[in-house]
């Protein structure tokens, strides 16, 4: 069986909102170390994953490894019935075909229970090479959302150039072009005027072109974290990571656009 009590429903609500438009259904993999998920979108361009470690729950009990097939649209609707500050208890009894979600209000005077039907999903797991990235950018997640939204008005893709100076996002379209440069905070020629919280750690400069449609989907995870880590190497998928407090993370991998 699985019983996992999450002190704040808002965390689970935000996680589901940040993947439901990329993946329609997937298995939640539960083990004694926590709850995780990995799935690609239908076009095999973006992979979404998350991990919530067992110690983020209080208490957490999972007797054996489980794969629980969830339809995100249903889970999202049910989680809308939970208050942000409610406690959520996720419960699965062995061999059942439902997952129970119990929401308890902060004063414990209102307890609601919803059951969601589980699906039998034959999911494919991808093995992601464990690699060192040539460039690691860390920046404000709300700034990242704003840039993706602004550049979407210009074009369908963005070129991200990361150099020692900072990180530049550029888009070109039929009607014109636009770019935003975020300088590294605290760099010498930018003292006191840098955008707070931008850092670039690099082995060599990286330039990648990415679909803005996907990036705008990833920004739905911004409410989970003040910052986003963008890990890049030339010519390979980019990894975006939003930390979920100190209990886990959401990661997105996005295949780049390659020059013909």
């Amino acid at each position: 069986m699985l019983e996992a009590r999450l002190p704040q429903a808002s965390i689970l609500k935000k996680i589901v909102e940040s993947v439901k438009d990329l993946v329609s259904q997937a298995n939640f993999d539960c083990s004694d170390s926590g709850i995780s998920f990995q799935a690609m979108d239908e076009s095999n361009i973006a992979l979404s994953s998350f991990l919530l470690r067992a110690d983020g729950f209080d208490p957490y009990r999972c007797d054996r490894n489980l794969s629980l097939g969830i339809k995100f649209a249903s889970l999202s609707k049910i989680l809308k019935c939970a208050g942000n500050d409610d406690v959520v208890i996720i419960r699965y009894m062995d061999d059942a075909d439902i997952l129970s979600l119990v929401f308890e209000s902060p004063n414990n005077e209102r307890i609601s229970e919803f059951d969601i039907k589980l699906l039998d999903i034959d999911s494919e797991y991808l093995s992601i090479p464990d690699q060192e990235f040539e460039c690691k950018v860390k920046m404000s997640s709300s700034e990242f959302s704003r840039i993706c939204r602004d550049l979407m008005t210009i074009g369908a893709s963005v070129v991200i150039d990361a150099t020692k100076e900072g990180v530049k996002f550029s888009a070109t379209g039929d009607d014109g072009s636009g770019s935003v440069l975020l300088k590294q905070s605290g760099s010498i020629d930018n003292e006191g005027r840098g955008v707070v919280g931008t850092s670039v750690e690099m082995v060599e400069p990286v330039s990648l072109e990415l679909s803005l449609k996907y990036l705008n989907n990833f920004t739905k995870a911004a409410p989970l974290s003040d910052s986003v880590a963008i890990n890049m190497s030339n010519g390979i998928p980019v990894m975006f990571q939003f930390d979920v407090g100190d209990i886990g993370y959401i990661r997105y991998f996005l295949a780049p656009q390659i020059k013909d």
Binding site: S43, S127, F253, A255, Q257, I258
Partner: peptide, 14 residues
């Protein structure tokens, strides 16, 4: 002009 790569070009199935 550029074209969208697939993740399957980079990641393998387990």
């Amino acid at each position: 002009k550029s074209s969208q790569a697939s993740l399957m070009n980079f990641f393998s199935k387990k």
